[in-house]
């Protein structure tokens, strides 16, 4: 029930932004919010539980890394020697839950030199612009922040078969 109220509040805020705050627009806004709420729960996207403290830590990290990602790829595309040495690697998740994993695979593509290319529940295949350990380190750092964002404990590498 609380989730529904929070979600309705967010949708109402979104409607207010989209409609520019005109009163008459709520005639359409309220049915639209109701429909969105119904569809949201019907499609079962209820697994996105994130923590506020995690978000405060995640957001600057993500903005900083995507800034670096843009600068990195811009430099590579403008540099005459085209400094690329691509590779395809597999990364096994330590995150325990599917929604967090899906979120992470999307974030991967905005980080420097990594692009998520195939997602299978336990692992993700990542295309990298540069061969070597840098990409894996980047992914591990992202995974820690995503775990924080969703308030999750990560499995340690040793637990895996």
């Amino acid at each position: 029930m609380r989730a529904a109220i929070v979600r309705a509040g967010l949708l109402a805020a979104l409607w207010w932004v989209l409609s520019g705050g005109a009163w008459s627009s709520w005639l359409f806004g309220i049915p639209a919010i109701a429909a969105a709420l119904y569809l949201g729960f019907r499609l079962g996207s209820g697994g996105w539980r994130w923590t506020f403290a995690g978000a405060v830590r995640f957001l600057p990290f993500f903005l900083w890394r995507s800034l670096s990602g843009g600068i990195d790829v811009a430099w590579r595309s403008l540099s005459p020697s085209l400094p690329l040495d691509p590779d395809l690697i597999e990364y096994e998740f330590r995150l325990p839950e599917t929604p967090a994993r899906v979120f992470m695979s999307n974030a991967i593509s905005l980080l420097p030199g990594t692009l998520s290319a195939e997602y299978a529940d336990e692992k993700v295949r990542v295309h990298t612009l540069l061969r070597g350990p840098g990409a894996v380190r980047e992914l591990e750092r992202l995974e820690e922040r995503v775990a924080g964002l969703f308030g999750l404990e990560m499995a340690s590498r040793g637990d895996r078969a």
Partner: peptide, 17 residues
């Protein structure tokens, strides 16, 4: 960039920034 994967890097990251 030489293939579709590297081009995706360029479009996704540079354009979003």
């Amino acid at each position: 960039f030489p293939d579709v994967y590297t081009r995706l890097h360029a479009l996704t990251k540079a354009d979003n920034l």
